[in-house]
Each structure stands twice: as C-alpha cells, then as structure tokens.
Amino acid sequence: MVDLAAFDANADALASRADGKPLRVASKSVRARELLSRVLARPGWRGVMAFTLPEAVWLARTGVSDDVLVAYPTADRGALAELAADPALAAAVTLMVDDPGQLDLIDAVCPPEGRPALRICLDLDASWRLLGGRVHMGVRRSPVHSAGAAGAFAAAVAARPGFRLVGLMSYEAQIAGLGDAPPGQAVRGAAIRVAQRRSYRELLDRRAAAVAAIREHADLEFVNGGGTGSVAATSADPAVTEVTAGSGLYGPTLFDAYRAWRPTPAAFFACAVVRRPAPGLATVLGGGWIASGSAGESRLPRPWLPTGLKLLGAEGAGEVQTPLVGAAATALRVGDRVWFRHAKAGELCERVNELHLVEGDEVVATVPSYRGEGHAFL
C-alpha cells in the first residue's frame, strides 16, 4: 500500500530541499511506472536514473521519460544492440562508464560506424579516502577517483568515434546513504557526522576540479550527485547541476536514522495473523522481506501497525512465518493484519505484483509494480 498524501508530501519536501536544482528520480527506489510518472509530473522533478539498461529502454519506450540515465555500467549485449539500432532511443538514454573496457564491449556489440553516437556519463568515485587509500569511507564504485583520472578518461572518450560524453555522476554514499543518527548509538552517530563533514569538504574541491578537467574535452550537459539523504548538501555544491532522489518518496526505515530530514512513511505491506502459539505472541504468515546491504538488524522489516509490536531476536523476520511480541500482540486474533515497513524503498516491489494507492481511508487505484508488469530487471 502507498499513501499518496505522504508520497506527494515527500516529493515536495525533497524538491524544496533541492533549492531550485532539478531532481532526477531513482527508479530502483520506486519500481512502479505509475508512481514514476506521478513524481515526474510534480514541480522540481526531471528525468529518471534507471538501474539497468533494459529497464531504461522500457521506460523510454513506454513514455515515462525521454531522459533516462543508467546508473551502472552494463554488459547486456542485447539491450546495447537495441539501443544502438534506434536513434530516438539512443538520444533518450545515457550509459554509465568508468573503464575503457566498457567502451570496448559496446564497440564489439555495435561498431561505431554503424550506430548513432551513444550518450555517455562518467562515474566519478565519491568515496573519502585517507592514508593513501588504506582508509575508505563510502561504497566501492568507480576506479576514477581523482580529477586527473577523470580528465584523462574524458580525453579517451573524446578520441573514440561513436561516443559523446554528456554527463558526470558522483554518488557520495557515505553522506547520502548513511544515517547520521543511528538509534541507541550516540557515539557512533557523532563520529559519522564528523566524518561526513570532512568528506563533504573534500568532495566539493575534488568534484569541481574533475568537472573542470572533463570540460577541457567535452561539453557536459549535467553533473549529477547525491541521494535522498544528502539532497540539501549536494544541491549546495556549485559544481552539481542536478540531484538524484528516490527512497525518500516511500520513506523506508533506514531513513529514520537521519537528523536533517526524515520522510513521512508512505509505503507499507501487510501480513495476516495465522497463529497464536502462546499468550502475548502472534505469528503472521511470511514477512521475511530482508533488504540488501550489510547484514544486520537494520535490514529487517519493522512491524508498524498496530503499534507496540516487535520481532523476536531469535527468529527475526522469517520466510514463511514471523512471530511478534509486544503489548499489541495480546489483542491480535487469527485473520487480523499487521502492517510492516520495509528497510529499503523499491525492493518492496520485488515481492508484490500490485500497489494499492490510498487517499485518506480509501483505495483510489491499484497499479502494477515492475514485477506485476512481468519485469525483473535485476
């Protein structure tokens, strides 16, 4: 279920935090065409960041957007051939690269003399590295980290026929994707905030230098950065022209650990009570919808309504059943529903075919997820 009032309020709050810079919606965090179109129709939102090339092709062909940036490099030969065979599609989709080998693969699938020039975006690694790289804060993404490496790669792209370098992306996961107020961990939270401030200052200088180095070889149409957890900070970077956001539309539990802004919970799933194995204990069918990332309690779904329920530490959220304890468990009966929030955003849609859109206490529409339309892109 998606609460449309909360979804729209989150979209508007994110646009306000972007302070006039356009937001590109991260499709992997939504995974429903109806809701992607809904947010793109709101002020401040423009373009899609897709997570695979086949998805980008589908979104462009179905009219969701004529500006789709693929967030990760692709090795999908079939999708590359389809892209190269259609000039209109090639004009709508931008590929992500960070290694000459990726360009070689594209050329092997569709030689440059037989295709339109393909739009290319360079992924600049935004992680914070200390002590000569021995200390790493952030995710392991692109090998292109320095401004010099970015300029050299841009020169290499410019020298190759069949490619046009139009964008730069850098995702500062250590800021955008790391909550700075983890519950019950005050000392860790303070350390995260210090590290994030220092990382941000380092990235401001390095990203600006990389943009300058690349512009010696290419006319950049956009410089993309950030995510839901860093919209305001990333928008304040003069080198950035657009910011990505997506998870904040649904408001999953991982974003409860942020101080600057916490989205209103908007997406939920329900499981039915099927057992009462003991007093004060209720068991629902299923529920083990575990989020990706580093394994731990933060990746578990959280019982939300009725209030006062929690998972059992010894069992957690199970594939076929999830026992719940707490004050509310006593009142639950077989057939009652328990509503959960997922730890992450779009991964919820990999479990369901339909999303029920709710306004107030009424279901106003039921729309398919990607899965409901028969697509599993990754």
Rank of each mutant, 00 (worst) to 15 (best):
C110I: 06
A278W: 04
R31S: 12
R33P: 13
G151L: 00
L285R: 14
A314R: 15
Q174E: 11
C121M: 13
L357S: 10
L168N: 14
H375L: 08
C110E: 12
E172I: 05
I192N: 00
R38K: 06
G296W: 14
E55N: 10
T62S: 15
R24S: 07
A239V: 14
L35S: 06
S27W: 08
G78I: 10
P303I: 13
E202L: 14
F269S: 00
H136A: 05
A26Q: 14
T307C: 12
G313A: 13
W128K: 12
T283R: 08
A331N: 00
V93K: 02
V157T: 11
G189Y: 11
A208H: 15
A9C: 00
G189M: 04
E55C: 13
Y200N: 10
A376P: 01
A365R: 09
T322S: 08
G248S: 06
G293I: 10
G229E: 07
G372P: 08
S369H: 08
L204I: 11
V352G: 05
V334Y: 03
E242C: 12
S235M: 09
P277M: 05
A190G: 12
I290E: 10
R188I: 04
L103V: 09
A108D: 13
A156D: 15
T52E: 05
H136T: 00
S247T: 13
G316W: 04
G225H: 02
G372N: 13
G44Y: 01
P277Q: 05
A156T: 10
P116F: 01
A331S: 09
G227Y: 07
G286Y: 06
G280Q: 03
A239E: 08
L118M: 11
V48S: 01
P112C: 08
L220I: 09
T74A: 03
P112R: 09
S298W: 14
L69K: 01
E347Y: 03
G360P: 05
M1R: 10
P301K: 14
C121I: 15
F7D: 02
V166H: 07
M49W: 00
A155N: 07
V157F: 00
E172V: 07
T74F: 01
A156L: 15
V243D: 04
K344E: 13
D336I: 02
V39P: 06
R129Y: 06
A79N: 12
G63R: 07
S146Y: 09
V194Y: 11
G138V: 01
E82I: 01
G308L: 10
K28C: 14
D219V: 14
G313T: 04
H342N: 09
G293E: 07
I175F: 07
T52W: 02
I106R: 06
L4K: 10
L332K: 01
S142R: 04
A84Y: 15
F268C: 03
R140Q: 11
D237C: 14
G47T: 02
G335N: 00
V273T: 00
Y258C: 11
